[in-house]
Write a protein that binds this DNA or RNA. Structure first.
Lengths: 168, 168
DNA sequence: TATATTTGTCAAAACTTATTGAAACTTCCG
DNA sequence: CGGAAGTTTCAATAAGTTTTGACAAATATA
């Protein structure tokens, strides 16, 4: 395959995968495009390359900036804003993990913590079972939270070292 | 809050959270309902409690069985099929992790492996950058794959022990 | 200040995914 | 076999999500 074709393919593929990851197609595509681009791109260039509307490009770029995956770049002499993506995959992964933790785990913990406060007769079998289930979910999500928080705040070397540790 | 109300609340909450987790609302709700129910429930009971159609209940129950989260139970003397959920949260988590790995990571690895095969002039800066990015994604997803595979096939104690190991 | 260029907003349209409901199928039992 | 009880399928529909595009707001230029 030719390089440009391969890049295109990457952008398409990343877009499809994004949907599996709870990330909108456009968001994943723009990210892929910027990831593959040595130089920052303007909103117009993004629109053109992906055939998307200005509104979409604008909103999605903002989202990407909020996630911390993309940065605004000002070129001297140019009035337009340009955008470039974080190129270090480990940093990218951390960003995504952080966002997904927020959406998926933190929300769940909040909900479960509420449920753990339900009071009832401890002799009631039903109640006991309920509390038991809730408590064990709480405990488990606590562990995952601890782990993820650690990963999200660590560097690549720590991760790789830990990986080795776990297999010895 | 009263116990039944709390259970209801749990079912609703789990349903909402499910959508964040790439699991359909109904699927998450049925799972929650069965998780909270001491006895197996029939299709009809599930339909009634969640106000969903027979078709939906049936298909979703099948999905849950395929995921390994729910089991068919035959009661002697009854013709109907009953369903009960895996109650051990660690097993539940492993099931979900397994499915999500398949959807999210395995597909990505397949796509990336293809891209890594693109050939080009190693002196071309663009090409070098492309390969570099692809290779690092490949390496990273390989590590995550190894880790997840290990977790999915381990028991709870291993997980907790490892957790402690990582913080010492 | 007027004009040109770029960026941001939002209601409506397009698209995607989930759910329904009725019909088809299967199984069990007299 | 005939039909009652239960299960599965799937085209139609509803619900939810993403994307568009025209316009408003902001910012620079003359």
């Amino acid at each position: 395959m030719e390089l440009e074709a391969a890049k295109d393919h990457f952008v398409q593929t990343w877009g499809t995968l994004g949907t599996n990851w709870g990330i909108s197609r456009t968001m994943a595509q723009i990210h892929a495009l910027l990831l593959m681009s040595p130089d920052p791109l303007s909103t117009e260039e993004v629109m053109d390359k992906l055939h998307i509307s200005r509104g979409n490009a604008n909103m999605t770029l903002r989202d990407l900036i909020n996630w911390g995956l993309v940065q605004k770049v000002i070129k001297t002499g140019e009035r337009k804003e340009f955008f470039s993506a974080e190129k270090d995959i480990w940093e990218v992964a951390k960003c995504i993990a952080r966002e997904r933790k927020r959406r998926e785990l933190d929300q769940m913990k909040k909900a479960i913590d509420q449920l753990a406060e339900v009071t009832g007769d401890p002799k009631d079998k039903n109640y006991a079972a309920f509390i038991d289930t809730v408590k064990s979910i709480q405990q488990f999500s606590g562990s995952v939270d601890t782990l993820l928080t650690k990963v999200i705040n660590s560097d690549k070397n720590w991760f790789l070292k830990s990986l080795i540790k776990l297999f010895t």
